Amino acid sequence: MAAIIFDLDGTLIDTEESWDIVRRGLARDAGLAWPDGATQAMMGMSTQEWSAYLVDAVGLPVTPDEAARLTIEAMAAHHRAGVDVLPGAVEAVRRMADRYPVAIASSSPRVLIDAAVEALGIGDLLQATVSTEEVERGKPAPDGYLRACELLGVAPGEAVAVEDAPNGIRSALAAGMAVVAVPPHFHPPSAELLAEATVVESLDQLTLDVVAEALSRAAS
């Protein structure tokens, strides 16, 4: 028994840079400089966590709820204009769903996950979707992946996460899962972190053999 759990932003759809542009725009409009490390820090955070970070660390002069609303409204507009599907994404989900239970565990709010799944046309292939808004902690904590495993009825050691970002990889590893990493051009993980995953250059390379390799490696 095994299951495949995909990240969404940066793994199936190319939105990581859009999140950064939107958040930086909010800071710029408020006359604030963008702190060093803020982009990397927020990658993988839940909505509650990154909205608080925008207020506490970046200094937005609004409440966390308002920071979240402004950001999500701007991202929803990006989604309505059409999601930028990463190469091989839909085909990879279909290929995995032919053999394994498949889910998504994402840091995006539920409304954006649902919109992306609809735009990708993969709703019939997924047995579960999890937003880290729905668990206690966002990535790099393991909560989202653990919840997805629970919904799929598999032990974390029997599941493979497909991830791009450092915090996502750390989240899946903390959950006790095997990881297939698809490093992005936008703030890629360190070589040390990638050494803990099975690395592919694109989702076109996500095959049953790669999944078997990742599970074997994690079990060794």
Rank of each mutant, 00 (worst) to 15 (best):
D20N: 15
I21M: 13
V22G: 00
R23Y: 00
G25W: 10
L26G: 05
L26R: 07
L26I: 10
A27C: 10
D29I: 13
A30S: 13
A30N: 12
G31S: 08
G31R: 07
L32W: 02
L32K: 04
A33Q: 12
P35E: 11
G37D: 06
A38F: 01
A38R: 09
T39F: 06
Q40W: 15
M42H: 02
G44C: 12
M45K: 02
S46G: 14
T47Y: 06
T47M: 11
Q48G: 12
E49S: 09
E49Q: 00
W50M: 03
A52M: 11
A52H: 09
Y53A: 02
D56V: 11
D56I: 07
D56M: 09
D56N: 12
A57C: 14
A57Q: 13
V58Q: 03
V62D: 08
T63W: 10
T63S: 15
T63V: 11
P64H: 00
P64K: 08
P64L: 06
D65H: 11
D65F: 12
D65S: 13
E66N: 11
A68N: 03
R69V: 09
L70S: 05
T71A: 10
T71F: 00
T71G: 04
T71N: 02
I72Y: 08
E73Y: 14
A74T: 09
A76P: 01
H78W: 15
H79P: 04
A81V: 11
A81K: 14
V83Q: 00
D84N: 15
D84Q: 15
V85K: 02
V85S: 10
G88D: 07
A89G: 07
V90F: 07
E91Q: 15
E91N: 13
V93C: 04
R94C: 06
R95P: 02
A97P: 09
D98E: 15
R99A: 14
P101I: 12
V102R: 05
A103H: 04
A105L: 03
S107A: 14
S108G: 12
P109I: 00
P109Y: 02
L112C: 08
D114P: 08
A116W: 01
V117H: 01
A119I: 09
A119Y: 10
A119W: 12
L120F: 12
G121K: 00
G121H: 05
G123K: 05
D124E: 15
D124W: 02
D124K: 11
L125Y: 10
L126V: 05
Q127N: 05
V130E: 02
T132H: 08
E133N: 15
